[in-house]
Structure formats: structure tokens, C-alpha cells
């Protein structure tokens, strides 16, 4: 039974330049307790996908155009605001990228921590305080009683991200969405925070969606991985599928362009060009202009298909994105 099932989600933004197809037909599924990584470059739509799930997209200019997101048997995209507020923070929590800007600078840490408990009337203020102190201890904040009444500016970046995690997990949610939780942090602190998320996941048995642009972060952390490019998922499978048996030319290019995989002194592999602007009509294959595969103009116009090439391993198959595509497109 899957905990979350997203089907064909599309979120568009109306801008002066035209409609931006930020997310354009994304499907994901997540089991209880599972960790899903979403990788992609900036502008690929990974954050918008997750914001859409909790309907955090500003409307207008944004609009969820189509799709379903079934969580616990209910469609998040069609719920009333009132029902949705019962899910937000109680069943699905979110950690944002920048711990410097996502805490309220005017509120004491303690007050921010217990807010979700009080709003959802899960316990009284005294119990909430106790629970908050417990959580602060669990995420590794020393001196929790003293720090409970301090303000965010008195905390370092790593400490603030710990507070964000404590706040997200204080309600014991079933799903945690972490949007680039370590991008703003140093490598040594990044290792601490990832360990912490993993530890809390084991304790609470929750599912995690980890959004990142860093393939290295994903590799040891996630059970399954979805690779996004220009608003769609181009490849999805287990971590092993993505790291050992990647099919899509973009996934392969991304892995090859990381310096640590390269011989010193050799030239780095680069994916030519830049990601496309998702404005205007949808191309048959968004990756075709940057692909290193040989394909004819006629082939470039062919529709791409999202196919299961091996059990659980899905790839967007197109002459520009998969070698020997004919094996799959019969």
C-alpha cells in the first residue's frame, strides 16, 4: 500500500512572458517508511512539485492544472482548505532550504516549536513544552531549557536547521518533505543533519522525500530516486538502478560531470548547453538539444514515452535520451 501516490501532477505559472510549465506531468509513489530522493537542477520543478502537494503555491500566478495526489486515501489537491490544514504539519511536515530565513526572527524558539502542537490541539501548553524540550534533546541541542527561550539569531546555521527538524517532527508526522535541507550548510554539518534525519526516521517510522541537486547526498540516503528535468520525471528507480544502471542520457551526464568521478588532469565531462526555458509548447523531448546521442531530425519529433524498463525502473524513452531506444519502443 502506498502512503502517497502522485499522478500526472502539473503546475503552471502565468507570467508576462507566457505560461511557465514548472511541473508538467509528474508521477511519484511512496510507501510507508520509505525514502524517496528527487534530484534535478534549479528550475527542474522539484521544489514546485513538493510545494504543490501541500498547496503552498501562490495562486495566482501559480495554478495546479491537473493531477492527483492521494495521501492516506484522500486527494490533497482537491481537499478543502480546512481539511488540508488538518494534514499540514500533523501528517505531512516540511523542512525548507534556508534555515536563516525560515524561522520567525521575532518569536522565541520555544514558541515556534510548540506552535504546531497547539494549533492542532494535540496537547496543552505544559505538555507541549515538555515535548519540545524532548525534541530539542533528540535533535542534539545542548542546554535545551536555556535555548528554549532564545531567539533564532542566537543560533548557528546548523543549530537552526536542527530546530527546523525538531519543529517538523514534533507532531510525529507520517511524511517529511525536506527541500534541500543541507544546501545552505557546510559539509561537516551536512553529514550531521543527514544522520539526524535518518535517526529520526528510524525512530518514528516516517517516510521522507528528500529534494536535492546533489547526487552524492542521495546515493547513500535514499531507497528510491526520481530524476527531474524541465518539469518532468525522466528516470525513476531504486538508488542502485540510478547509480549503476542509469538509462537516461541526462542522468548519465549528470553523474559524469561531477569532479570526484573524474581523473585528475583530464577534462571534465560537460552536458552541452543549458536547461531549456519551460515556456511555450511542450517539446517532444526536452533533453534533445543537449543530448550526446545521435538521432535524426525525424526521430527528434517522436513522442517520448515513460516506460518501465525493468521492474520498478522507469525511464523516459526517446531516441535523444536512451541508446538503443528501439528495444523498448516496439
Amino acid at each position: 500500500m502506498s502512503l502517497l501516490q502522485v499522478e500526472n501532477l502539473a503546475t503552471h505559472f502565468d507570467t508576462r512572458q507566457g505560461t511557465v510549465r514548472a511541473v508538467d506531468g509528474v508521477s511519484l509513489s511512496l510507501k510507508k517508511g520509505e525514502t524517496l530522493g528527487i534530484v534535478g537542477e534549479s528550475g527542474s520543478g522539484k521544489s514546485v512539485t513538493c510545494y504543490s502537494l501541500l498547496r503552498l503555491i501562490p495562486e495566482p500566478p501559480g495554478k495546479i492544472v491537473s493531477g492527483k495526489a492521494i495521501f492516506d486515501g484522500e486527494d490533497l489537491l482537491r481537499m478543502t482548505k480546512r481539511d488540508l490544514n488538518r494534514v499540514r504539519a500533523r501528517k505531512i511536515s516540511m523542512i525548507f532550504q534556508d534555515p536563516m530565513t525560515s524561522l520567525n526572527p521575532y518569536m522565541r524558539i520555544g514558541a515556534q516549536l510548540i506552535e504546531p502542537l497547539l494549533i492542532h490541539k494535540m496537547c496543552d501548553k505544559k505538555q507541549a513544552r515538555e515535548r519540545a524540550l524532548e525534541m530539542m534533546h533528540a535533535v542534539g541541542i545542548p542546554d535545551s531549557i536555556k535555548r528554549y527561550s532564545m531567539y533564532p539569531h542566537e543560533f548557528s546555521g546548523g543549530m537552526r536547521q536542527r530546530i527546523m527538524i525538531a519543529m517538523a517532527l514534533i507532531t510525529k508526522p507520517e511524511l517529511l518533505i525536506a527541500d534541500e535541507p543541507t544546501t545552505a550548510l557546510d559539509v561537516t554539518v551536512q553529514a550531521q543533519i543527514l544522520e539526524l534525519i535518518r535517526k529520526m526516521q528510524n525512530e518514528l517510522g516516517m517516510a521522507v522525500i528528500l529534494i536535492t541537486h546533489d547526487l552524492g547526498v542521495i546515493s547513500g540516503f535514499c531507497d528510491r530516486v526520481s530524476v527531474m528535468y524541465s518539469g518532468t520525471v525522466v528516470e525513476s528507480g531504486t538508488a542502485d538502478d540510478i547509480f549503476y544502471r542509469a538509462h537516461h542520457a541526462y542522468t548519465r551526464g549528470l553523474k559524469k560531470s561531477i569532479p570526484s568521478t573524474q581523473e585528475k588532469g583530464s577534462k571534465l565531462y560537460t552536458i552541452p548547453g543549458a536547461p531549456p526555458q519551460p515556456i511555450g509548447p511542450k517539446p517532444a523531448c526536452a533533453f534533445a538539444p543537449r543530448s550526446d546521442l545521435n538521432f535524426s531530425e525525424e526521430e527528434a519529433r517522436m513522442e517520448a514515452k515513460f516506460l518501465e524498463v525493468q521492474p520498478g525502473h522507469w525511464v523516459e524513452v526517446h531516441p535523444a535520451s536512451v541508446e538503443n531506444y528501439k528495444e523498448y519502443l516496439k
Binding site: S156, M159, V187, A191, G216, V217, A239, D240
Partner: peptide, 26 residues
């Protein structure tokens, strides 16, 4: 050593069994 240990690799199998030096505090 801690800095180098914190570099994530692209190999999920070795990543899962890796003993990382995680520094305490800031």
C-alpha cells in the same frame, strides 16, 4: 579527515556501509 569523510560518493552500496566521521557541534 572529517572533511574528507563527509564527501558523499556516488556509490550507494559503499555509502550504506560507510563509517563516517561525524563531527560534534559547531
Amino acid at each position: 579527515q572529517a572533511l574528507i569523510s563527509a564527501i558523499p560518493t556516488l556509490d550507494p552500496k559503499s555509502e550504506r556501509n560507510r563509517n563516517r566521521i561525524v563531527l560534534q557541534g559547531d
